[in-house]
């Protein structure tokens, strides 16, 4: 494992911890999209089908369990926790899941490295992860006021994606036959979706002002 991959995993982990911290300690999920969180739960559930059958390393298995556990517990908090669920911006968070899920599933059935159940679902999880942030970005546009923790959560997610691209570049030059077009293109698209958000994030940070997106 190289330093970029590790930094990517750690920023990913930090993003989830920041979100759980916000929900668990402040008992609020204001500004957080349940649609995005449910999509992430589906992403991890379909990607880690190999968790008990293919052992890669203790690190991998541990991280998979953390991402599965955290994504499902965030969904549980937002849907079922008696205090947290009251702060959910239900009327603003109207993005339809199936607009993203159905095209990703169809695309994964056409474009994949091998037409098997697990491989198609694994590819589906990559495509879905690429667009899963969209409901969250739409919600941010609508509410406009972004609290620090929500801003940091999205910033850390974007950083995770950026580190993964450096990881792929590194692996391409250091490992023989390391060419994987599907995750690369899906990952690149995903990172580009954060571009706009990054621009405003750094702008507000530089001017020491509260993060606000344009209407």
């Amino acid at each position: 494992m190289n330093i970029f991959r590790f930094a990517g995993d750690m920023t990913h982990l930090a993003s989830v911890l920041v979100l759980l911290l916000k929900i668990h300690t402040i008992k609020s999920c204001a500004g957080v999209s349940l649609k995005t969180q449910e999509l992430y739960a589906i992403v991890f559930a379909t990607r880690y089908l190999d968790i008990f059958t293919d052992f890669i390393s203790l690190y991998n298995t541990f991280m998979k369990l953390v991402f599965l556990g955290s994504s499902f517990s965030i969904v549980w908090y937002m849907r079922s926790h008696k205090i947290v669920r009251r702060s959910y911006d239900k009327d603003q968070d109207t993005f339809r899941h199936y607009f993203l899920i159905v095209p990703c599933l169809l695309l994964a059935m056409i474009i994949n490295e091998k037409f098997t159940f697990r491989e198609v679902l694994w590819t589906f999880s990559l495509f879905l992860e690429a667009v899963a942030i969209l409901p969250q970005l739409v919600l941010l546009q609508r509410t406009r006021n972004i609290d620090n923790l929500t801003g940091q959560y999205i910033f850390l997610l974007g950083a995770y994606r950026a580190f993964y691209i450096f990881n792929w570049i590194y692996r391409y030059f250091t490992e023989p036959h390391y060419v994987h077009w599907i995750p690369w293109i899906a990952g690149l698209l995903q990172t580009l979706l954060y571009g706009d958000f990054f621009y405003y994030y750094f702008h507000s940070w530089k001017n020491n002002k509260k993060l606000q997106l344009p209407a």
């Binding site: 995993d9 990913h12 293919d54 890669i56 998979k64 490295e113 036959h177 994987h180």
Partner: peptide, 10 residues
């Protein structure tokens, strides 16, 4: 079967 190398990523 052999795991594709990218399946070792999260």
């Amino acid at each position: 079967r052999e795991q594709p190398q990218n399946h070792d990523e999260l």
